[in-house]
Design a protein around this nucleic acid. Structure first.
Lengths: 342, 342
DNA sequence: GGACGGTGGTAATTCGAATTATCATCGAAT
DNA sequence: ATTCGATGATAATTCGAATTACCACCGTCC
């Protein structure tokens, strides 16, 4: 059955069972409907030969005539498994794998995509998207032109994470960062916080922009925005303290962890002197068993629902192609009323 | 380009460029050899149409006539991503992904394999192994009959982890548990340990049997074997203490961690009263930042080398199809000379 | 002038399975 | 006895790309 030795085909089975190749196909596909009524005797003869020879249909030839391939493509902009990005992709993939297993699909990771300018690219000369029936897109940020081309070509795909329109609406299953952020900021305000700041990018990726939007909705347009990029946690902490901030809303959990460590080192009490609220989970490796206040991103559910949505898209039963999942609010211990002194 | 709209084919390109489908194929495959000499003018015309239409060859139809598919199959006997088994598979997959990326291959995870008796099965009515050029097999234990069938069908595969013969030698990249275990036991003996025990299964999976073999080579045939299956860590500890063991060699790191915890609870000093040596990494989730003495399994390297071996098998350049990688010995703090009293 | 060889393509076939069109047979109804 | 319809199967075609076989044309050399 190796490639060198001629593989067993339906034609071979047909010859051995003394029927036509068509009959073999009919038996295999269990077509008992009008056009095909094979008597049990013929049928058994064919099945017997198949059992004896161990024949297995070529899945690829099959796909040529059928529409579905039972392959779910997964495109990630970085490697999935290395520990640097593994923590980020892992929960998504767990949900995806779970759902794919239920649907009887195989998972194709596009590791062959060539890297240009530090990240993989979907479209290149030897594009292999078509091997899969459809594709899931993962990554903090996805180039708009690639999304636009997918849409233009009507390739079935679903993005894990909300994306802005790119020459048309992008099908996605995202997390509702905006309302989650708004909610936690409102909680802080209800506790008495008035000097509130956003720490992080606040723009660029949709997930950053969404959080900032929620923050602005609850904290107002004049609440300070403290950047974290290219700054040490100590510098960020200084910035926050200089501005007499009582509650910092940190976009990236890894930054929150570093900020907490910097505060501890400096003798700044969290949450006594400064409340630290995380707006999601770590996208960079960062271990901490500290129970931060804030919210978690339902990554596993997002992966799972994305597969379900893709399945709906493929079968044409999808009604709504954009889905936002609520985040899980966590009480935690890093948020308390502001101290009197502040 | 969607499934509904008829996809762009070479025939369409041919029609638009006013040449035959053959010519398109020739241009695409860059066949400048004897049989095909397309003048630059015709060639450019075809390429122009291809660029304008954004045509992409169907990777699957292609495979029908070519031999390679650039797809590397990965079969695991459990889900890859859930945290329960994720810790186990993750390092292997990291190496596999890394190497596949270098070779320009995509990774196909056979998540569609139906589950029977609690584990996935390779062979079933709708076998999809053939979608991939070859396959990697992962799992603590792999049923011999499935291996035998793969060998009989001459399907190109490589097992990650050593396997016993199954109707023929199994191609593998494994870890040299035997010598690693022998070495750490010899270290313990050199430190003065005489009452030495093996804690774990010691048989069943090849990895267990290999460790036991190394243990026997260094500790002798009469050294005690303390089972751990279906017993609490406390029971195991009692067993070890009853036998006046001074150094326990624990097959499974998760068991070692539990044993250490039980000892601490009981006031038994490790390594003062009892040295605990781990024979590899955790296959079950178990977190501990304790620096155990023993060795680590080079999982990442195993995955990587397995892909390399499969590539060699596929290209026919493989000479040795069975490879054992050395384990990484770790000094750790759980092994010391036995106390005088013992 | 016709056999020969190089050039520039095309028609036909192949891959393996699925689908469509078609055919042969038999029993029952007309 | 002829027709009709159900039954049981086969030949031919299809999918998209690659390969093989072949053909038409032009110039040249004997």
């Amino acid at each position: 059955m190796a490639d060198k030795a001629t593989r067993l085909t339906q034609r071979d089975i047909a010859r051995l069972a003394k029927v036509s190749q068509t009959t073999v196909s009919l038996v295999l596909n269990n077509r008992s409907d009008a056009t095909a009524r094979i008597p049990a005797e013929t049928r058994d003869r064919v099945l017997k030969v198949i059992r004896e020879t161990g024949y297995q249909a070529d899945p690829l030839a099959r796909r040529m005539t059928q529409q579905r391939n039972q392959i779910l493509g997964v495109f990630t902009y970085e490697s999935v498994f290395p520990s640097a990005s593994g923590d980020f992709y892992h929960p998504f993939m767990a949900g995806i794998e779970d759902c794919a297993e239920r649907l009887g699909w195989d998972l194709l990771l596009f590791t062959s995509a060539p890297v240009a300018e530090g990240r993989r690219r979907i479209f290149h000369e030897n594009n292999r998207l078509r091997i899969a029936d459809g594709c899931l897109l993962l990554g903090r940020q996805i180039p708009g032109e690639e999304l636009a081309r997918l849409i233009a070509e009507e390739y079935p795909f679903v993005s894990v994470g909300r994306r802005d329109d790119a020459g048309g609406p992008v099908p996605y299953v995202g997390a509702d960062y905006t309302s989650a952020t708004r909610t936690v900021v409102e909680q802080a305000r209800a506790l008495g916080h008035r000097r509130i700041a956003y720490a992080g990018l606040g723009s660029g990726a949709e997930s950053s922009a969404d959080r900032m939007r929620g923050f602005r909705e609850a904290a107002g347009a004049r609440a300070p925005h403290v950047p974290t990029a290219d700054r040490s946690a100590g510098e960020v902490l200084d910035d926050l303290l200089d501005r007499k901030i009582t509650a910092a809303f940190v976009e990236e959990r890894a930054d929150a962890i570093a900020l907490y460590a910097a505060a501890a080192e400096r003798g700044v009490d969290v949450p006594g002197d400064l409340s630290v609220v995380t707006l999601g989970d770590a996208t960079r490796p960062a271990a901490s068993d500290l129970d931060f206040s804030g919210f978690h991103v339902p990554r596993r559910a997002m992966g799972l629902r994305a597969v379900e949505l893709l399945e709906a898209v493929l079968s044409g039963t999808a009604t709504e192609q954009q889905l936002l999942l609520p985040c899980d609010l966590t009480d935690g211990i890093t948020l308390s009323p502001p101290s009197k002194g502040a």
